[in-house]
Write a protein that binds this DNA or RNA. Sequence first.
DNA 1: ACGCTCTCCTGGCCGC
DNA 2: TGCGGCCAGGAGAGCG
Length: 270
Amino acid sequence: MPELPEVEVTRIGIAGHIGGNTIAKMVAHSGNLRWPISPELADILPGQTIRSVERRGKYLLLHCQAGVVLIHLGMTGLLRILSTATAPGKHDHFDLIFHDGMVLRLNDVRRFGSVVWAGSDPHAHKLLADMGPEPLTDDFDGAYLYQKSRGRKITVKQFLMDHKVVAGIGNIYANEALFHSGIRPTTPAGKLSKVRHLGLVTAIKSVLTTSIKVGGTMLDFRDGTEKTGYFHQELAVYRRCGLPCVVCATPIQQNRVGQKSIYYCKTCQR
DNA sequence: ACGCTCTCCTGGCCGC
DNA sequence: TGCGGCCAGGAGAGCG
């Protein structure tokens, strides 16, 4: 599923194709995604030029003169660049057609994604306004995370996935970062020391950065020729229930916290 | 402010 | 082979 690294790789990939290109038409093919595709887009977007493509958490921001289109890929969303429009498939929901014939197409099997008009002040939009710092910026450090966790009773795993705390950390990277920092996912966030927060932040940055590099070598956005399973990092714990820990060979445990799966090594993570 | 639960969706997988 | 049922999972909404 698209996590922050995949969204970042997507951002870089599509920016090279649509940046500076002018939109001729927007077409919504099917019913709703998470919310209805903002209907005003059909009126606003024709004639708009893509100035830049930004990422905030897992949202992509397409900057035009009139404002910003927010795109979220949900769990199964995929953006493709086509050189010419082809008939949309069952799970193709949205096309941006450019003057030169190029098409940016959103495919999303489970329809948890969204396409929203955010106007000229996107960072004030309610979907972005309360978001915490980007995990790969210097604003996100051990002191910050430690301070935010004081008094919090939720598990550190759930804490990391709260986007008001830090933007764009999903289930995979929460599990992986906790493994690499040796922290049991079920530990209450408020019980962890400052030093352990520092290690956790270091692990988050490391695992995200590595994954962006890997994803970047495996994506090709032109005409749907992207490799399947385009994110292919070696995962240490995620979905490895019962398999040996890569460090100590203890079988990886799986449990549920909240509605999500946690994976951890009971020996390495305390 | 915080924490918990519910909800959206569908392909894949399991058991019978 | 078909069918029912369950699961994964991002993250906002709504409630206490």
